[in-house]
Computed example of a mutant assay.
Amino acid sequence: MTAVLSTRGLSWRIGEVAIVDGVDLDLAPGEFLGVIGPNGAGKTSLFNLITGVRRPTAGQVLLHGREITDLPPHRRARRGLGRTFQASSVFGSLSVRENVRLAVQAQRGGSLRLWRRAAADREVVAAADAVLERVGLAHRAAAQAGTLAHGEKRKLEIALLLAGEPTVMLLDEPMAGVSAEDVPELVAVIRSLTGDTGRSVLMVEHHMDVILELADRIAVMHHGALLACDTPQTVMANAVVQEAYLGEEL
Results as ranks from 00 to 15, higher is better:
residue 52 G to C: 12
residue 245 Y to V: 05
residue 57 T to Q: 09
residue 68 I to W: 11
residue 209 D to R: 13
residue 190 I to A: 04
residue 2 T to Y: 00
residue 113 R to V: 13
residue 53 V to S: 03
residue 26 D to A: 00
residue 14 I to H: 14
residue 39 N to F: 01
residue 4 V to E: 02
residue 107 Q to P: 02
residue 161 L to V: 02
residue 151 G to V: 09
residue 247 G to V: 00
residue 21 D to Q: 12
residue 115 W to L: 11
residue 186 L to E: 12
residue 173 E to G: 08
residue 205 E to Y: 04
residue 57 T to C: 08
residue 232 P to D: 13
residue 189 V to E: 11
residue 126 A to D: 12
residue 207 H to G: 04
residue 128 A to M: 05
residue 174 P to I: 02
residue 147 T to G: 12
residue 148 L to E: 14
residue 163 A to F: 07
residue 20 V to H: 14
residue 207 H to S: 10
residue 52 G to M: 07
residue 175 M to N: 09
residue 27 L to Q: 07
residue 118 A to R: 14
residue 208 M to A: 06
residue 135 V to Q: 09
residue 141 A to R: 05
residue 1 M to P: 00
residue 70 D to N: 10
residue 232 P to G: 11
residue 94 L to P: 01
residue 130 A to Q: 15
residue 13 R to T: 06
residue 32 F to H: 07
residue 57 T to M: 04
residue 190 I to E: 02
residue 131 V to A: 02
residue 66 R to A: 02
residue 213 E to W: 10
residue 104 V to H: 12
residue 56 P to I: 02
residue 31 E to T: 10
residue 9 G to F: 13
residue 23 V to K: 15
residue 65 G to I: 04
residue 42 G to L: 03
residue 96 V to G: 04
residue 156 L to Q: 04
residue 188 A to W: 00
residue 232 P to V: 06
residue 24 D to C: 08
residue 157 E to R: 06
residue 145 A to C: 15
residue 3 A to M: 03
residue 206 H to L: 01
residue 184 P to S: 02
residue 165 E to S: 15
residue 30 G to Y: 11
residue 232 P to N: 09
residue 147 T to V: 10
residue 141 A to I: 05
residue 85 F to I: 00
residue 42 G to M: 03
residue 131 V to H: 02
residue 243 E to H: 04
residue 98 E to Y: 07
residue 100 V to M: 07
residue 79 R to E: 02
residue 221 M to F: 13
residue 204 V to I: 15
residue 46 L to S: 03
residue 84 T to Q: 03
residue 238 N to L: 05
residue 144 Q to A: 09
residue 135 V to H: 05
residue 221 M to W: 13
residue 193 L to K: 08
residue 211 I to M: 10
residue 19 I to D: 08
residue 137 L to H: 00
residue 128 A to K: 09
residue 9 G to I: 07
residue 4 V to N: 05
residue 1 M to F: 01
residue 165 E to M: 15
residue 162 L to P: 14
residue 172 D to E: 08
residue 16 E to M: 05
residue 47 F to Q: 01
residue 109 G to C: 12
residue 111 S to T: 13
residue 143 A to T: 09
residue 149 A to M: 09
residue 249 E to A: 15
residue 108 R to Y: 11
residue 146 G to V: 08
residue 186 L to K: 02
residue 61 V to R: 10
residue 210 V to I: 08
residue 208 M to W: 03
residue 31 E to I: 11
residue 17 V to Y: 14
residue 29 P to R: 13
residue 48 N to M: 01
residue 226 L to A: 05
residue 15 G to V: 14
residue 80 G to S: 11
residue 127 A to I: 07
residue 146 G to T: 07
